[in-house]
Design a binder for these strands. Structure first.
Lengths: 185, 185
DNA sequence: TATCTCATGTAATCAGTTACATGATTGC
DNA sequence: GCAATCATGTAACTGATTACATGAGATA
């Protein structure tokens, strides 16, 4: 039920059309909340009906018209109320862990290429995060250079970086275990 | 689409009824895949119809009858095929990260109690994992004492432990940031 | 007497994905 | 000429949650 809130945060950071939101959900916000454009359009219409967002039709030349959404006060209020609600524990869906345990009933070596591919994906993501950090927060060590929003964005990014580091180290552990089992050690 | 496979792994590790599976999903398996009993019963019926599992009615005295499920060969085959499929990147749902960025548009201090509660939950989980590790894998350092299934279970558990450690460290980082912002530093 | 555990289920609803559709413009 | 980008949508479906129901024995 937090897609509404993720959209609100994104619109508070910068107003935009459904299409633009969908692209943000592919990039930055998609790091911690995914959504397809169909879902975004549907939720935006509901949010507009509830008065959480305002829509403004913008005509463009050479491009289709678009509806630019921005957060309205009732939306801000709803966000503030949500911030004060208890954080329910997140439902976990860790497919790779299921696969690793499943490997005990099949050939463990069969899983190695997939885990390697997974590891590469996380390494690439870590590199992108570190690049983004150097680009967006070069002076993070100097006090007083970042506003509240930037400091909060940075601490979320640091979480992503640490998560990727931890995951890569763990996948190396997994690979070592799988290779040992494959070699009969 | 991996609930079927998670159930299969669990039934291969040990046959059991829908009710028992639901309890395992509350405990061990729930660490990386959650499911309610309603969903488990529904999926079990489908799996039985597909021949992935076999059911045996077991009468008990003093307790209701139960249907004990065990994995059948077509289920094993499906699991082996699934292991060889590409691992699609998992959809991320990180509500706390959304909240942290939302705090920029509200009072950052309002989030502190919730983050503290979150941190306590992760610390408790880490303690449980470490206890489980000492109980189930006391001789993990000595080669030749664990079979393939145990070694794979252990590497998954190590992942959980590292994830909790990383998360606790990050939540401390988040709390420090929120407290600095609340104090106007 | 009341609550907890064991055991299985139905019904309604919500969230999210996949597939398909439309139509103009820009770049190769 | 073809693919990609911009822009918004409908329809069908699957996966998952919430609420409710039943009923017996065990425990406090």
């Amino acid at each position: 039920m937090a897609l509404e809130h993720a959209i609100l945060v994104s619109l508070l950071e910068r107003p935009g059309s459904g299409y633009e939101l969908a692209r943000r959900f592919d990039r930055s916000i998609g790091r911690f909340w995914t959504a397809t454009h169909q879902q975004i359009y549907r939720v935006l219409r509901r949010m507009e009906a509830d008065g959480w967002v305002r829509a403004e039709e913008v005509a463009q030349d050479g491009r289709p018209d678009k509806k630019v959404y921005s957060a309205a006060q009732p939306g801000r209020d709803a966000l503030a109320a949500w911030l004060r609600e208890p954080v329910e524990p997140e439902t976990v869906r860790h497919e790779l862990a299921v696969r690793i345990r499943a490997a005990a009933f099949d050939d463990p070596a069969a899983l190695i290429p997939e885990v390697e591919r997974h590891r590469e994906g996380h390494a690439a993501l870590l590199a992108r995060y570190l690049l983004g950090e150097r680009r967006d927060f070069p002076d993070a060590g100097t006090p007083g250079t970042l506003d509240a929003g930037q400091r909060l964005q940075h601490v979320v990014l640091r979480g992503g970086i640490e998560y990727e580091r931890m995951t890569i180290a763990w996948l190396d552990d997994v690979l070592a275990t799988l290779r040992e089992l494959a070699e009969g050690r």
